[in-house]
Design a protein around this nucleic acid. Structure first.
Lengths: 327, 327
DNA sequence: TAGCTCTATAGGCGATGACTATGGCCATCA
DNA sequence: TGATGGCCATAGTCATCGCCTATAGAGCTA
């Protein structure tokens, strides 16, 4: 039907002939035979229904139409080359983007990982979105989020297990956490169930997996916690903790990262949290997200100790943190 | 060597699939089979060493790389289409350029033709260059000038006859021309040779073909003209004529066009001038120059009477003008 | 006029693009 | 849960295309 050929090849041939003012010379530089050039350019001219080259003189040169056309051809080839280069940049991770979904907890935990990723791949722009774990999962399924950083929660993940791929980073103990002026600050011996029930708590609301874990723990051990504040903001909880009166339940690392926040062990022990990357199974993975998963694996093995956080207070239980990594 | 395919075809296929989010649907709109699309896009992806489409989900959609690349592809295709359109415009004469070489004389004579050309093809920019006839011929040979408007001059044209193509427009009588206050202004009877020799003349210098024709005429009839002023500017001559004292020799039409300039016949009669288009033989002719030649032929047949020139003085010899056209 | 240079043409060969038929995967439905 | 239908990938075949060599034809030079 439409013999709309105009392959980049023909265009490059045209440019070469125009540049050398000679089919023969251009053929040499292009490492093709001269008849090939004659033929290809003839076809290009036929497809445009216009003479592009004036072969009548001693040297070949562009007609007016050729002069006009060649500038478009140059730009078109330029775009193709630029497109190729842009893709290269995406692949060598000098450019790109990555969107991460995180809970408030994992946000705190993964901040050093994100910082390290940005240091290693400064050209990749990272977007982080803080949300409940369920939203992370649906975001990953919908493709809005490349990678989620969440807790392994068999209750929720199981539902979409066949669509979701997990990569465990490390296991994180949960403990009670209190401010420095709290009565149990720095206490080395575990608190028992009864003592816990006496402590007014500030907790995330039950949209969040951490809270659901805590509720499950309380249910299993028949603990009736005294919940003073429910919120969806971890920083609110931490600020309240600093005032000294309330306690909360947090991953150990977060307590250690924060100034003036002290972890306190409980008996019975809270179940450890597994921090996990989740992503769509069998889906296309961008180079940036593969790189992130790789870096996260490294970081998980190293453990969470690399966090160069300004800390002044003691962190008596930092050794509880158990670096680990699963596949 | 470099399997740098990326034919516009593949790009259009990619755009279609991205647009329809489906190979099958895209294949229908492109009137090709679905496997063809699969194959072509796979090759495109291989040549870019990148996955452009994510086929894992329910619908096909672009990967990050595909998203990036497709914008370049769109621009490249846009340039190709724009180039094609630009050439169309050149061919349908809605755009283009034309450079004309003219002597001062033919400049005056052809002004109405150029005006008419511009009216008919307003998109074509016309460049006119005033120069001696020899320069016109060399300019035409060198390709700087598309079309020259000159006198047929067997002496000069003969030298390059095989490279130059001529198209006679019309024959133009030469006469003495004087200002309105000159003693012979409005004289109906021809002047003889002796009277001519008494008249001080303002003439173009011998770079110009008109002057060489005049010299030849004088030589043949053994006339010894009294040359008062030599110049390369016709307008200078005309202004001097208006002062009333000097005369010159001019094509009849120019005398008639100018206010207050009167033609006066001579005996023996001056040889008529043939106004001629010259262009390179066997060379590429742009659509614009072909259009100009066509319009010039029309205009030559109609004669030089169409010149809508402001004139106040009488033009007693206008009937001498002999419209004509040769091929 | 012979020789040289340059482009166009002719004919053959391997690569490429497009087709049909088919297989695998997934989602939907009875 | 097995059947069905939609969708993309693969295999195999054929026509076309791009490129090659050989050669013709045109123009310039000696």
């Amino acid at each position: 039907m439409d013999r709309n050929i105009m392959c980049p090849r023909s265009l490059r041939y045209l440019l070469a002939v125009a540049e050398h003012h000679s089919f023969t010379r251009a053929a040499e530089t292009l490492f093709v035979s001269q008849p090939t050039l004659s033929q290809q350019i003839k076809q290009l001219e036929e497809s445009l229904e216009t003479q592009l080259l004036d072969r009548s003189g001693r040297t070949v040169h562009l007609t007016d139409a050729g002069e006009v056309y060649i500038s478009y051809a140059r730009r078109a080839l330029g775009e193709l080359d630029a497109g190729k280069r842009a893709i290269q940049e995406l692949q060598d991770l000098s450019r790109g983007s990555l969107s991460l979904g995180m809970t408030p907890i994992t946000d705190y935990l993964a901040a050093p990982l994100i910082d390290r990723f940005n240091k290693r791949y400064p050209g990749i722009s990272v977007g982080t979105y803080e949300m409940p774990q369920d939203d992370i999962e649906s975001g990953v399924l919908a493709g809005n989020i490349d990678i989620g950083i969440a807790f392994t929660n068999t209750l929720t993940v199981a539902a979409n297990y066949e669509y979701i791929e997990t990569q465990h980073l490390f296991i994180e103990p949960l403990n009670l956490a209190v401010g420095s002026t709290h009565q149990y600050a720095g206490q080395e011996t575990p608190l028992d169930q009864h003592t816990l029930e006496q402590e007014p708590l500030a907790l995330l609301n039950s949209d969040f997996a951490l809270r659901r874990h805590i509720d499950l723990y309380c249910l299993e051990h028949d603990i009736k916690p005294s919940i003073a504040i429910e919120t969806n903001s971890l920083s609110t909880i931490i600020e309240v903790l600093r005032l000294g009166r309330l306690a909360t339940i947090l991953p150990n690392t977060i307590a250690c990262q924060q100034n003036e926040i002290y972890p306190v062990m409980l008996i019975p022990e809270l179940p450890h949290h597994t921090i996990t990357l989740i992503s769509r199974k069998d889906s296309y993975k961008s180079p940036a997200s593969l790189a992130f998963k790789g870096l996260a694996a490294e970081w998980g093995v190293e453990g969470c100790h690399d966090t160069p956080v300004k800390r002044t207070g003691p962190c008596p239980m930092s050794e509880v943190c158990t670096p680990n990594s699963h596949n």
